[in-house]
């Protein structure tokens, strides 16, 4: 599959051509395309003179990077200790049923991706679901549908 990586030269220009820029560049690519196309990995490796294997290792290590396209809306379900105790598992199940996909997957129309995260540092609001950048606290199973409609 060919991907459009037209914005890549611009992203690469924003950073010094050194090894230290790698993560910053990957973050910018991730932000621009919502995932990191494999051509972008190869180009970045060449531009920074870092072995492709190292770039691949780093991009697969961090959860913030995804090598497969992700949805426009990313639903993050917190399953940290506090959220877990307050029923995060049920919330996760409900979201999975509502969207018809499993955690870690993206809906075929490319609208939603479900991610499971372990603690977002908002334990007082448990259970927490994050719709893109918006935090929703004390989520109830009955409130899941409404929460998914917030940004459609």
């Amino acid at each position: 599959m060919k991907h459009d990586i037209g914005k890549l030269p611009e992203i690469l220009d924003r950073h010094p051509k050194s090894q230290e820029s790698l993560i910053a560049i990957l973050q910018d690519i991730q932000k621009e395309y919502n995932y990191i196309p494999c051509e972008a990995l190869t180009e970045t490796a060449t531009a920074l003179s870092i072995p492709l294997s190292k770039v691949f290792a780093i991009s697969t290590f961090y959860n913030a990077f995804s090598l497969t396209p992700r949805g426009e809306t990313i639903i993050r379900v917190c399953t940290g200790t506090a959220c877990h105790i307050r029923g995060a598992e049920l919330i996760k199940d409900q979201i999975e049923t509502a969207l018809g996909i499993k955690a870690g997957e993206t809906t075929p129309d490319g609208k939603f991706t479900i991610e499971v995260v372990a603690c977002v540092g908002a334990c007082a609001m448990a259970p927490v679901v994050i719709n893109n950048e918006k935090y929703h606290g004390s989520v109830k199973v009955s409130g899941v549908k409404k929460l998914l409609k917030v940004k459609k």
Binding site: P51, L52, S53, K54, F56, A57, T60
Partner: peptide, 22 residues
Amino acid sequence: HAISLVGRGHGKTVAPPLNEAP
């Protein structure tokens, strides 16, 4: 530098970049 440790945690493996012939 043909292969590297890929992923992390229990999903970690040794693999060539992009899981293609290195």
